[in-house]
Design a protein around this nucleic acid. Structure first.
Length: 549
RNA sequence: GGGCCCGUAGCUCAGCAAGGAUAGAGCACCGGGCUUUUAACCCGGGGGUCCCGGGUUCAAUUCCCGGCGGGCCCGCCA
């Protein structure tokens, strides 16, 4: 093959060396699907149903990171399906986990439930069966909104119904070796003594205060004592109770250091992505899965955490929650999916202020998808088009939508007069030549995003500005004129005339008026804006500014 | 102590997965157009040792190794 390339003239090399076939939709996910299939084939496992998995945290508010896990895993499932293999995503709720900390913004009354499994804590908002259910459903709502399809499983139910019984037994019987594996991989010695299982204390109801020290295989029982544990730098005191737990009845759960392995084997999981914060646990589980449970663990993909603008990680409990719901206030589900899917690796700073970028980028990708924008490189085109399709979870719309730059919409939203925002914006867009009658539903959604944005992030302040005596006189005259002039053009013209009459550069005079009305040195065409805003309001604002200046 | 990510235009970044021709975008800046200067929009312009050094290759911003600089994660639980 190499020789052949060398013999042809250089200009043709590319076409010969390049024509590697584009895999699937040309994205990372398609490549991953191929790798999974190759791996499964070489392992000789059945390809009838290839399962991917994600974990749902139920102990705190879901944030965009948890959402990303789901979006990426589901994209892999879709890629597998695109290659004609049956696949499904398991959404496994970690609702048997204990509450470690009361999340910021939640009632302090929850403190008494610290250490309790989140599925046995009442929902403080009273809309769900439990605290855990409330939290996990927030994420599930976001998934539904984005068209992410999954099979839901509850950890609490799984333990209760004995789904992991056999694996728990194997793990407990091999606890010593597991303790060594953990020590080898992460240097933690705790499990060389304690069993990798947390019983729920039959006396105080907490799960993280117990230590399991003996396993009685014949009776399916685990002996424990409720001695307390350090969680997130805080000592959680145990009640001192000693008892036995029956693991077949779900009277406890496996530690994460061994639970994934059990899940992978029982559910026959072939792919699971994970954030780098749990990389150690995954490594440990991979070994336990292979060496103890005799099941080759799923293929993995590791992704980075999201950072906020100051470089700190988005934390579920730090009160800086960037939730999917927050995103949907300013941007479409597809724009969030685009963020998650366009790149797999790499840390990313993320701020709400990035949303407009992704909204615009999605429009650009849509242009490529519908052939409105030319991309000469075939591979590049396939990839961008693929990302677009995955942003729609492979169900892209049949027709392109009406594209309006996000910043234009927020700009219009900012200056739109109260109570007639949509009308004002639509009228302006029409004036700029946009075909607003088309796709009015989509347009309305875009306007709502922009209005939310403007409301939350752009402060309109009527401000005063330093003016010279000449300028003050001019402003007074302008106020007078406003009482008389009726039309947009007349007002527009009057500004020029008054400025010239008082020997002020029109640009300076415009600046003054904009600053007073909008708090910014420029803005929309004033004649029409003043009409839209209402002459009374404008007059009042100008008078106020004069009085203060 | 262990591991990971990032370093591309003045700023923010894309491109890097499966290496390919003059390396892109937004913002900012400069010039022009849009019924007489302003927003939006459109057209044009300047601006880069793709962090440094090796290696692989016909070909490296892209892959590999080693530096330097910035940042993150884990080291209890999850």
């Amino acid at each position: 093959m190499n020789r052949l390339i060398n013999e042809v003239e250089p200009a043709r090399r590319k076409t010969l060396a390049m024509p590697k076939e584009i895999i699937g939709h040309g994205t990372w996910f398609d490549k991953m699907a191929v790798e999974i299939l190759e791996r499964e084939r070489s392992l000789g496992r059945s390809l009838n149903l290839i399962r991917t998995e994600m974990g749902i945290t139920a102990s705190g508010f879901p944030h965009v990171g948890s959402f990303g896990d789901a979006a990426r895993s589901f994209a892999v499932t879709l890629a597998l399906k695109a290659q004609k293999h049956n696949s499904e995503l398991i959404a496994f709720s970690d609702d048997k986990d204990g509450l470690r900390k009361v999340p910021a913004g939640m009632p302090q009354s929850l403190k008494k439930y610290l250490g309790f499994p989140v599925s046995s804590i009442p929902d403080p908002y009273k809309c769900h069966k439990s605290y855990g259910k409330h939290m996990s459903s927030l994420l599930l709502e976001a998934l539904d909104k984005c068209g992410i399809d999954y099979r839901f499983m509850s950890g609490y139910e799984a333990y209760k119904t004995g789904l992991f019984n056999k694996e728990i037994e194997t793990i407990l019987l091999n606890a010593e070796r597991i303790g060594e594996i953990i020590k080898e991989e992460v240097g933690q010695e705790k499990f060389t003594e304690a069993l990798p299982y947390f019983p729920v204390c039959s006396n105080c109801g907490r799960i993280y205060t117990t230590q399991a020290h003996n396993f009685l295989p014949k009776e399916d029982k685990i002996l424990y004592s409720c001695k307390g544990m350090e969680i997130k730098g805080q000592w959680m005191e145990g009640c001192g109770h000693k008892d036995e737990a029956d693991y077949t009845k779900g009277e406890g759960k496996l530690s994460w250091k061994a639970e994934f392995a059990a899940r992978w084997k029982v559910l026959d999981i072939r792919f699971e992505a994970y954030g780098k914060d749990i990389a150690d646990s995954v490594r440990v589980n991979d070994r336990i899965c292979q060496e103890i449970l005799d099941y080759t663990p799923p293929m993995h993909a590791k992704y980075e955490m999201f950072l906020d603008i100051s470089g700190k990680r988005y934390s579920k409990s730090a009160g800086r929650i960037f939730s999917p719901q927050l995103w949907f206030r300013y941007g479409s589900p597809q724009s969030l999916l685009l963020l998650m899917l366009k790149r797999f690796v790499g840390a990313r700073s993320l701020s709400v202020t990035d949303i407009p970028k992704y909204m615009n980028e999605l429009d650009e990708l849509e242009d490529i998808h519908f052939g409105k924008k030319e991309i000469t490189d075939e591979k590049e085109r396939a990839k961008l088009n693929g990302i677009y399709k995955y942003s729609w979870m492979l169900k892209p719309p049949a027709r392109p939508s009406l594209h309006i730059p996000y910043n234009l919409l927020t700009y219009l939203a900012k200056v739109a007069p109260k109570d007639s925002e949509t009308e004002f914006i639509t009228a302006k867009l029409k004036e700029y030549g946009y075909k607003t009658e088309r796709d009015s539903e989509d347009l309305e959604r875009r306007i709502v995003y922009a209005l939310n944005w403007a409301q939350d992030y752009i402060e309109i302040k009527e401000t005063t500005t330093e003016t010279t005596a000449k300028e003050t006189t001019a402003l007074r005259e302008f106020i007078q004129t406003l009482q008389v002039e009726k039309g947009e053009d007349q007002i527009q013209g009057a500004i020029f005339n008054i400025a010239r009459k008082h020997e002020i550069k029109p640009s300076r005079f415009f600046q003054i008026v904009y600053t007073i009305l909008l708090g910014a040195p420029q803005g929309p065409r004033l004649g029409s804006y003043i009409i839209a805003m209402g002459k009374k309001n404008v007059t009042a604002a100008l008078k106020k500014a004069l009085a203060q200046g």
